[in-house]
Amino acid sequence: MLTGDRRKKRLDRSIKVRTEGLYAVSSWGEMVYLIAPRFVLIVGLFTLPLVLDMYWQRVLCSAGIYALLALGFDFLAEFVGLVCLGGAFFVGVGGYISGLLNAYYGWPPLLSIPVASVAGAVISTLILLPCLRLRGIYFAIVSFMFPLFAVYIIVALGVFGSTEGISALATFPNIWIEQYLILVAVILSLFGIRRLVSEDIGVIFQGIKDNDQAVKASGINITAYRTKAVFITALIGCFGGAYLSHLYGWLGLSLFAMDFSIMPIAAAVMGGMGSLVGPVLGAFILTPLSEALRGFGQLRVVLYSLILIGFIVYKPEGLMNYLQRKYHQFELWEKV
């Protein structure tokens, strides 16, 4: 296509193809093309705390937690083939362990959060282990039940503060640490999981999703690999929960709230399933949105659902898949 001395050039296809295998980048333009989206994401997230006021900074922190959960949900659903609705369970287990370590043994958050993330992930994985043989909807149903299960156990036994919860846990020294801790966690998990899915283990995960019988016939223990995948997701989710209990200095039954199971799915659908970055972005859009709609009271849920339905009907691929496609088809005018 020619107009005068300029013509349209497609920048990308070839770069995309080349960079999927080896990194052969031949010009500054191509390097910028590759780095720009990552740069915008990281810098964008890290400058958010600087421009927001106190109230929205808090919202950013909880958006970070939802981002971690959405990321975990996307990873399990699209790359391992397990639809896990147990986000609330991870948050609850992580939050309770970290909070209890702090309340009963006086561990500082610096110590209790990492311990709670790992211990919570181990516990969640062990509890989900018997269900890992289930596929598709069955795993989803069982994992959805666990948070309810945990709530009733805590109430029935009257342990861990029962219905009142435990307040006055140690909080973070200041709001900057709060925000940057969760943002760094989100970025690290995002790039970590992206790396993971392109490694051999990620190929095996994908194989399990596509055809678990063939993976068995290849001499690979699918339960062992599913366990690893669930552990990774639980680790991220439990970190979110542990962080949450110290963010508000409080632990209680609302750590097992359904929101933590449902919201990440909404974020993933909106952001674009299977893109990993999409669900993160979705969480950073949906959480503030639901805060902004707080004025509508109960009507908020309706508006919220409408947005979701809109996405499912008109853009089922989600934001990020659409944007990525457009970006990779980017055309620019160049001088002849």
Partner: peptide, 16 residues
């Protein structure tokens, strides 16, 4: 086959 993987990546699974 693992439909979404390139053919050669199908063999990464047994090779692991």
């Amino acid at each position: 086959p693992y439909d979404s993987l390139p053919a050669f990546k199908n063999l990464i699974v047994p090779l692991n």
